[in-house]
Every structure is written in structure tokens, then in C-alpha cells.
Amino acid sequence: MHDRKAVRRRRAALAVFVALSIVILTAYFGESGGGFFHALQRGAQEVFAPIESGASRALKPVRDFFGWAGDTLDAKDENERLKEEVERLRSQLAKAQTRRRDVRQLEGLVGLHRHDGFPQGTEPVTARVIARSPSVWYSSLKIDKGSSDGIRLNQPVIAAAGDPSSGVVGGLAGKITRVTGGTAEVTLLTDASSGVAAQVMPAGAAGVVKPEVGNPRDLLLDFVEGGRRITEGTIVVTSGFKASRVESLYPRGIPIGEVSEVDLDEVELYQRVHVRPFADFRRLDIVQVLTRRPPATETAGVVAP
């Protein structure tokens, strides 16, 4: 008897609380924002707010401790993940920068062929630099193309400009001095043994471009007749001279650099002109070897060195 009563009471309690909950739910959904339950909620939140705020401030150390413990555990995993990500991004960045540089250099080389006066029909072979000489006295580099690609001794080599804003996108870099089946060695203009017959455009003053060893940003145009007036900023190109049986290795018209300074004080037979090369000798990654000489090389009235 007692058990039945207890069961009934129990079930009634459950039914009452469930029904009460459903009534509240229904009323809450049915009423507007200003209704009884919404107002009650707002009031309760206003009452709770200072309590919660106080409790939150008072128990912050506890929360911080748990947060610190959780963060420490999470940080270990995150650290590993971030390290991997940094490694991956660094590798991607390096690849992207290398590609960007390659693209810039290739653009420079393409632009160089379009440059006014550049010799046409030279059949350029593009090659990648695979090694460089460590000494400033022997300024040379090795490229990944050789005789099997049509490369022969003494062929001119051009490279993109380091600073495309100069207007000229590249210039002469050197010549082939050694060839194997798959590789070739380029002796740069900055090598101590280098010398190129050149002309200042458009004045036509001729001379020989020699390096200033140790300074790849400065070449010297020697043996320029003293009476010729040369101004800064004018362009120096290969003269491609041909005199009786002697002929320049470089076809006429390949840009070398621009005049950066003229030594006017030197009262000599020949004046010395400083030339800033267009090719960036410090950053050569891609070069082009001009494997064919243009059909007609103009004769220049210059005395060869």
C-alpha cells in the first residue's frame, strides 16, 4: 500500500516537473521579447552579473592555473606543428624567391634580345650556372650546357641586369673559355685577363673594356681617344670590329654597361672611362650563350688591344 503510494507520488513529481518545463518552454517561445520569462531572464542576469564578475575575478588564479596547464599541453603539440609549418613555408619561400629571380633574369635576357641594336640571329642557348670560382682574380663560372648543346670556345655569354630600372635589361657577361660535353666554363668580364673592344653610343668613341679586379660593379673603358667628349649615362656596347684578318669575338651591339664616370683630369693620349656593367656579376644564375655569329658584322674603325 505504502509502496504504491510512493510510486504514485514519484511519478506525479516527475510528471509535474516535466510538464512545468514544457509549459515554460512553450510560454518562452510563445511570448515576445518583453514577456514574463524574458524579463525574468534579464532580471536574473542583472543579478548574476556582479556575482559572476566577482567570482570570475576572485577565481581568476584558479582559472589561470588550469588554463596554463591546458595551454602547456596544447603548446607542446602546437610548437611541433608550427615548427613543421615554418620549415615548410621557409622551403616554399626559398623556392618562390629562386623562381622569381630566375624569371627576372630570363625576362632580362628576353628583353635584351629585343634591345635596339642587339645582334640578331645569334641562336642563344640558355644555361644555368652550376659553379662559380671563389677567387676575385679568376672570375669565372661553370654552366650546365656544353658542346653537346652547340656551345663552342670563345662564344659570347650574356646575362640579365641586376637592376632592371636602368632601362637595359642585361648585357655582356663574358665568353666561353672551356667546353666539355655537358658543361662549359665562362670567363667573366670581371676576370683579370678579360678585354672587350667597345664603343660609346651614340658618339662612337671606341676603346677596350677591362675589369677593375675586385669591383664587379665597375669596368674601365681604356684607350679612348682624348679628344672625344663622353658624357655620363651613355651606353657602351661591343664594337664587333673587324680589321683585315683580326675580328672581335663579340658581335657588334651587345650592351656592356653605361658610363658612370669620366676621368677628365688625366691629360693623356687616351682617356679612361668608368663603366657600370648591365649584367649583375654577383647574382648570375641563368645566362645565355650566343652560339651563332650574326651574318654581317660591321667593321669598326678601332684599334684592337
Partner: peptide, 21 residues
């Protein structure tokens, strides 16, 4: 809980009453 959090009134009551029971 519903009062303090501003959640739908009655939902938590319904479930917690059943859990308690």
C-alpha cells in the same frame, strides 16, 4: 542555468529534471 545564461527557458529544466529522476 537558463536564467543565468539567457538560454531557452525550460530546456535545461526538462533534461536535468529527467536526469535527476
Amino acid at each position: 542555468l537558463d536564467l543565468a545564461t539567457g538560454a531557452t527557458m525550460g530546456a535545461s529544466s526538462l533534461v536535468l529534471a529527467a536526469v535527476g529522476y
